[in-house]
């Protein structure tokens, strides 16, 4: 581990009322790595990811990108940082009033202040990459879940992010649509995108992850390479969770 991390989050803590939803969670990720967050529903995966780009304000904790600490209170820095950290949501969150193309363009024209023509061209390229060339004129309500998620990936990619955060990108999809989205993510991985992703797809995790982070009740219980976490975990809770997931989603080996 000689390379410095691209993104580093340290001791992130978040409470809702009295409940500690995230307790001193830390992670760092180097260029081209893919780290996968697993854990039961309600364990704090979404909160962790959203604290990393400050969509949720952590009560405590610090975040660095390329060695520079991000200060939430400096609005301009924060917005610049968010451009470099793409976010994919479980329920897509496409802009409902815009076509697929406009969804991808809007960040370019309004945030990056790119010219209309250039933005359109780039948006087309990004949509092409996720296999949606023929659907650019459709509105979110006219797209399938898998297509929506691919548009949202194109929208994030258009900003040329250094890191992507993916929050259960396939959890809202019908089983037959999951593969098309996972294929896009594998593509990103092959092209060297740095990613932190939460998922229940353990097969996928074991195939592509550099590291798996197991989160439970807001605490990082165990961290390690997929082979260790999924097949030889040390903690009892990790063992229980993984076997339960296998029951639900099928065995990977």
């Amino acid at each position: 581990m000689s390379k410095p991390p691209v993104l580093r989050a340290e001791n992130i803590t978040k409470r809702y009322g009295k409940k500690v939803v995230l307790n001193n969670a830390s992670l760092s990720i180097c260029e081209r790595e893919l780290k996968i967050l697993i854990g039961p529903s309600g364990s704090g995966k979404s909160t962790f990811l959203q604290c990393i780009n400050f969509l949720v304000t952590p009560d405590r904790g610090r975040v660095w990108l390329d060695g520079r600490e991000i200060l939430r209170t400096h609005k301009r820095d924060l917005n610049a940082y968010r451009q470099k950290v793409g976010m994919i949501f479980q329920d897509f969150n496409l802009f409902d009033h815009l076509t697929a193309l406009a969804n991808v363009e809007i960040g370019l024209t309004r945030v990056r202040k790119m010219g209309k023509e250039e933005a359109c061209e780039k948006a087309m390229q990004e949509l092409d990459k996720v296999g949606l060339r023929d659907h650019i004129a459709k509105y979110p309500a006219q797209l399938s879940g898998g297509q929506k998620q691919r548009v949202s990936i194109a929208r994030a990619l258009a900003m040329d992010p250094e890191v992507m955060l993916l929050d259960e990108p396939t959890s809202a999809l019908d089983p037959e649509l999951i593969t098309e989205v996972l294929a896009v993510i594998k593509d990103l991985r092959a092209n060297g995108m740095t990613m932190i992703m939460s998922t229940h797809q353990l097969n996928f995790a074991s195939e592509v992850a550099d590291e798996i982070i197991f989160l439970e009740d807001g605490i990082i219980v165990e961290v390690g390479p997929p082979d260790k976490i999924l097949y030889e975990p040390e903690c009892e809770r990790t063992i229980q969770f993984c076997s339960k997931m296998r029951e639900l989603y099928g065995n990977s080996r």
Binding site: Q50, N53, L55, K75, N79, A80, Y81, R82, Q83, V85, G86, M87, F89, D91, F92, N93, L94, F95, D96, H97, I106, G107, R110, V111, S152, R155, A156, M159
Partner: peptide, 26 residues
């Protein structure tokens, strides 16, 4: 839905930009 706001903020929109470009048109 709150997700619309989150998505815009995640792209680096300012608060005003989010309201003007994403929330109000809807």
């Amino acid at each position: 839905k709150r997700g619309q706001l989150l998505a815009a903020q995640a792209l680096g929109f300012t608060r005003t930009g989010t309201i003007v470009s994403v929330i109000l048109p809807q």
